[in-house]
């Protein structure tokens, strides 16, 4: 019995996530402040360089071949990857008390289950992607330091610890074979979708900084409340009007 508990990888994941939450709570940073603290910059830069090399010699050549596949096949893979991660959105929409997002994502998930998510039967209906990192942000847990992970890329500590919890939601310990097929598909599909952005990052004067800025901005926009985003728009409008004077 004791061994069974110890062998359960989810326990380790939860323990690791809890440890990270403790670390996060010790970071005195306002969650509304989207500037991500980067105390591990030199280490992050090394990991970024490693990821860049991995991309250049492994992912980019694979993507060149993947690019040749028919559009419908690529679209199907992209749809399936999104569908497979919908349970995470459903659970976290419930945690964040977003009733509309919860019902929309649940209905869409059930409907697209008929095609295993490879074909989107209701492309008009949209929902916001939610993860445990966004739930933590919703309950004012600070973002923590910026980290660059091997293969996975940029994350805030909050985002990363959320990912560990999300893994337990989407993949129980018994269906690892399922995870082993979706993960490569996700990497391939994302590499293909964002290939232009990745090229732009590599062409920047400081690719590390560019990747950090794009990650931070994108993450802030996807997890912030409408009120906070509107406030940001208003501030920007004021700034633009001042500059136009």
């Amino acid at each position: 019995m004791f061994n069974r508990i110890l062998n359960n990888k989810n326990i380790y994941k939860l323990f690791l996530a809890q440890l990270m939450l403790i670390l996060l709570s010790s970071c005195a940073q306002n969650s509304a402040n989207k500037e991500i603290h980067d105390p591990l910059e030199s280490m992050n830069r090394s990991v970024f360089k490693f990821n860049q090399g991995l991309d250049k010699y492994v992912l980019k050549p694979i993507n060149t071949e993947y690019e040749k596949l028919p559009e419908n096949v690529k679209k199907g893979v992209s749809n399936h990857v999104k569908w497979a991660s919908t349970p995470v959105t459903i659970v976290n929409s419930a945690i964040q008390l977003e009733a509309e997002n919860f019902s929309t994502s649940s209905i869409k998930f059930l409907l697209n289950s008929l095609t295993l998510g490879f074909y989107d039967l209701d492309p008009e209906t949209k929902y916001k992607t939610r993860d445990f990192g966004s739930s933590l942000a919703n309950y004012n847990v600070s973002s923590g330091p910026y980290i660059v992970l091997p293969i996975l890329g940029p994350r805030s500590l909050r985002h990363f610890s959320g990912n560990i919890i999300d893994q337990s939601v989407s993949n129980g310990p018994k269906n690892y074979s399922y995870n082993s097929t979706t993960l490569p598909m996700r990497i391939l599909s994302n590499r293909n979708t964002y290939s232009n952005v990745i090229e732009d990052i590599y062409n920047a004067q400081d690719p590390y900084l560019k990747a950090k800025i794009l990650y931070t901005e994108n993450r802030f926009n996807s997890i912030s409340s409408t009120k906070l985003l509107e406030q940001q728009k208003q501030d920007e409008q004021d700034e633009f009007e001042k500059l136009l004077d």
Binding site: A204, Q205, E217, N218, N221, L229
Partner: peptide, 20 residues
């Protein structure tokens, strides 16, 4: 300015140039 997926071109450039 152009905002793609809510990411402003001006803002990105500004943040990129700031440390330099």
């Amino acid at each position: 300015d152009v905002e793609i997926e809510k990411i402003s071109l001006i803002k990105t450039q500004k943040l990129e140039m700031r440390p330099l």
